[in-house]
């Protein structure tokens, strides 16, 4: 079990109540100005932590104004929780400074690795699911939670490869991490779907093995589609397409288990006009309002 809730003095802990169970949107500079006026369609915004690790300028200027209108989720993409080596404590400190400044309602990171030695590879790379990796991931999450003085959420990955030497299936591995560290779960519905198609797993069995009751945030996104050389469907978690029909249907099913949970429309590439994403946010909100029952 994590020690963050035992040893961390209360006074140093961020006072947060989690994200509101509403629709949210990933923040991009193109949307700074229109969103700065406030927007009833969104309960929260999410930023990539690393983009805001800059001294000043428009990013901080707009984020401060946006925080007056929306709850904030800070989503890390560079902590490399699954790295074989030690966590980058300098990066962890930068993150601590950012969280202290903005006091976000939620902080999340990925079950993946992205650094090796001095190299940062800027992709969420897959892990070999074995006992050694489990111990290491749990130690790293403990370190993050202790340093930040708060619970973090861990996002399930989208993967294209499985390791021969894995001894856990992915949802069982995640369940063990959540149980041992006390972290919450950021359930990326698109990643569940992508991984299940790519590895020919059953989405139903995958979801049943996850600790769905620990879901504190949901991500919805689109994917792009390819085939491997054997002609097997290979879905790519591209964040460049509208939320797919299969993802909406899986989302609806998940909400029946979790109840309403903060839900992000995640779009990082080939950004459409804001109105397109707000329409997707309203659709997610309609599902939330109906507790997963089709509106």
């Amino acid at each position: 079990m994590s020690q963050y809730d035992i040893n961390t003095p209360r006074s140093t802990r961020a006072v947060t109540h989690g994200l509101p169970a509403r629709a949210g949107l990933g923040l991009k500079p193109d949307y700074f100005q229109p969103l700065a006026k406030g927007c009833d369609d969104l309960g929260f915004i999410e930023i990539h932590a690393e983009n805001y690790m800059v001294a000043g300028g428009p990013f901080h200027y707009y984020l401060e104004r946006l925080c007056e209108h929306y709850a904030l989720s800070i989503h890390g993409v560079g902590m490399s929780i699954g790295a074989e080596g030690a966590l980058d404590t300098e990066h962890l400190q930068r993150l601590n400074v950012l969280l202290a400044r903005y006091q976000p309602a939620s902080f999340s990171e990925h079950l993946a690795w992205s650094t090796h030695g001095p190299c940062f590879l800027n992709d969420l790379l897959p892990l070999q699911y074995d006992q050694q990796t489990l111990n290491r991931v749990c130690e790293h999450i403990d370190q993050v939670q202790n340093t930040l003085g708060r619970r973090m959420l861990l996002e399930n990955p989208a993967t294209y490869l499985q390791f021969n030497a894995s001894t856990f299936d992915e949802p069982t591995f995640i369940r063990e991490v959540v149980r041992r560290t006390g972290c919450g779960m950021l359930l990326d519905v698109c990643n569940v779907y992508v991984s299940c198609i790519n590895h020919q797993w059953s989405t139903q069995e995958y979801l049943q093995a996850l600790p769905l009751h620990e879901t504190a945030e949901i991500h919805l996104a689109g994917f792009s589609e390819a085939f491997d050389r054997n002609g097997q469907r290979l879905l790519i978690d591209s964040h460049s397409a509208p939320v797919a029909a299969a993802i909406w249907s899986l989302y609806q099913q998940i909400l029946e288990h979790t109840g309403p949970v903060a839900t992000l429309i995640e779009r990082d590439n080939e950004l459409p006009g804001l109105a397109v994403l707000l329409a997707e946010a309203r659709r997610a909100q309609a599902y939330l309002d109906n507790h997963g029952v089709q509106p």
């Binding site: 690393e50 980058d88 940062f120 800027n122």
Partner: peptide, 8 residues
């Protein structure tokens, strides 16, 4: 290759 996750 980059040596920091802060890509800016």
């Amino acid at each position: 290759p980059p040596c920091s996750p802060v890509l800016v």
